[in-house]
């Protein structure tokens, strides 16, 4: 608990003061939340009509299948592709040959720094626009694959470098080749450390699937738009869609934490440090 770091254990006067602050804070928070609720109620946002869609089984099915399922499919397709790209370019950046290392470095730095939305629109106009909904779907997946792949390449590199040097040295001493050392010794140990980081990247990918809105790709935001345009229940729709995203992300985060505890232990890849000081805003 950080409180124990910053503060001495409080004496009786401090406890009394904190109690007073607590009361003030509670009153202020209730006032803020109450004001928001009254504002929503005044605008008629709690009327049954506004929420009816979300308790109608037919529409729930649309939200779950066209929305949630498509969003999850896009996110996981992108992450699987990103892991492949990440492995290739992460290892490429560690290559002993400059003619492999430099192109990999350029690829990773370029796609990490480019907003994923620009990439998505490029793919959409180049490939997706003539192919309807599947075109938009794959434009989103490709864009997220390339972007997350570039981010994961840095994660993989950091993971491989985090494996103790003695492991590789011992493998070389046994007469293994470079590729054997990487595939048999370094990568398996690195992957174990990296799994939580990869799951965290799933959260980023999942949130970024919402950008498919810009290219009319299927998914939660698309279904949400259809609902609020059709029923004019803008605020409830935003609340429900946001809640679904938050729930999915919290589940993913919980899985990442569990895996970290269960399989990895203390050793953690810090997403901020992954760039080796050259921060390119990887983890968001």
């Amino acid at each position: 608990m950080s409180a124990s770091l910053l503060f001495d254990s409080p004496g009786p006067r401090t406890i009394a003061r904190h109690r007073m602050y607590t009361v003030i804070a509670v009153v202020a928070l209730i006032a803020i939340v109450g004001y928001a609720v009254i504002r929503l109620a005044d605008a008629g946002q709690f009327e049954y009509d506004m929420w009816e869609v979300f308790i109608t089984p037919r529409y729930d099915k649309v939200i779950l299948i066209d929305g949630v399922l498509n969003t999850l499919r896009m996110a996981f397709s992108a992450i699987i592709g990103a892991v492949v790209i990440g492995v290739i370019f992460g290892i490429g950046k560690l290559s002993d040959h400059a003619f492999v290392r430099w192109p990999c470095w350029a690829f990773v730095e370029f796609f990490r720094a480019v907003p994923v939305l620009l990439l998505m629109v490029l793919f959409y106009y180049q490939y997706g626009i003539t192919r309807g909904e599947t075109g938009a779907y794959w434009s989103v997946v490709f864009a997220l694959t390339v972007y997350n792949g570039a981010v994961l390449a840095e994660v993989f590199r950091a993971g491989v470098l985090a494996v103790p040097a003695g492991q590789a040295e011992a493998a070389y001493a046994m007469g293994m080749r470079k590729s054997q050392v990487m595939m048999i010794i370094q990568l398996p140990q690195a992957v174990k450390i990296m799994i939580p980081a990869i799951i965290s990247q799933c959260v980023v990918a999942l949130k970024d699937t919402s950008l498919g809105y810009a290219v009319t790709a299927p998914g939660l935001t698309f279904v949400g738009k259809q609902i609020y345009v059709g029923f004019a229940n803008y605020v409830p729709t935003v609340i429900v869609i946001a809640a679904i995203y938050i729930l999915l992300n919290l589940i993913l985060t919980a899985i990442a934490t569990w895996v970290q505890k269960r399989f990895v232990g203390e050793h953690k890849i810090d997403m901020y440090e992954v760039g080796g000081g050259m921060a390119t805003g990887g983890g968001f």
């Binding site: 959260v203 809105y213 803008y234 605020v235 935003v238 946001a242 995203y245 938050i246 992300n249």
Partner: peptide, 17 residues
């Protein structure tokens, strides 16, 4: 855990209502 796009939908489309 909310996508930025949803926040923007809120402030641009739902908020004015």
């Amino acid at each position: 855990n909310t996508p930025l796009l949803i926040l923007l939908v809120f402030f641009r489309i739902a908020g004015p209502k």
